[in-house]
Simulated assay, not measured.
Amino acid sequence: MAGANYTLEFGLEAATDDATIIARTVQEVDAALERVIAAASTFNHNPTAFVVERPRFGPLQFPDHGLKIDVDPRLGVAALAWVGPDFDCPWVTKSDRPVPGASLHKDIDSATPFPDDAAITLDQLRAAVHEFRESGGHRPKCVEWQEADGW
Rank of each mutant, 00 (worst) to 15 (best):
P113Y: 09
A79T: 09
V51R: 05
T42W: 02
D64R: 12
A119W: 08
L60G: 09
V92T: 11
S103Q: 12
E131I: 14
K94G: 05
E53T: 14
D86I: 00
D72C: 08
I120A: 12
A23R: 01
A78Y: 13
F87P: 00
V83Q: 09
P113A: 12
F43P: 00
N46G: 07
D123T: 15
P115R: 10
E134R: 06
G101Q: 03
A15G: 07
D30M: 05
D123R: 07
V77S: 05
E134T: 14
T48M: 10
K106A: 10
P59M: 03
D96A: 12
N46W: 10
S110Q: 13
A39F: 13
L75T: 05
V92E: 14
A79D: 04
P140E: 12
P59H: 06
A111F: 07
A40F: 06
L75R: 14
H105R: 03
N5T: 08
A49V: 14
V36P: 13
Q27Y: 02
H130P: 06
H138L: 15
Q61S: 15
P90F: 08
I120S: 06
F132G: 03
L104T: 08
S110L: 09
L60D: 13
L104C: 13
T42A: 04
T121K: 02
F50D: 05
A81Q: 05
K94Q: 14
A39G: 12
A49L: 03
A14C: 08
R139Q: 14
R35T: 07
T42H: 01
A102H: 01
A118H: 02
H130D: 08
E9P: 07
H105V: 03
L75G: 10
G58E: 00
A39W: 15
R133G: 13
G58S: 04
Y6G: 11
A78Q: 00
K68V: 14
R54D: 11
W82Y: 15
I21E: 09
P55W: 07
T20N: 01
D123G: 09
L125H: 02
I21P: 14
P115K: 08
D18M: 10
I22C: 04
V77M: 07
A31V: 04
P59Q: 02
Y6P: 04
L60E: 12
L67G: 02
K94N: 06
L33F: 08
E131M: 10
G11I: 10
N44A: 12
S110M: 08
L8P: 15
D117C: 11
H105N: 05
A15Y: 05
A79V: 11
H45Y: 11
R126F: 01
G58C: 04
D123Y: 02
A14Y: 02
V77G: 07
V129G: 09
Y6D: 11
D117L: 02
V77P: 04
R133S: 09
F132Y: 15
R74L: 05
V99Y: 10
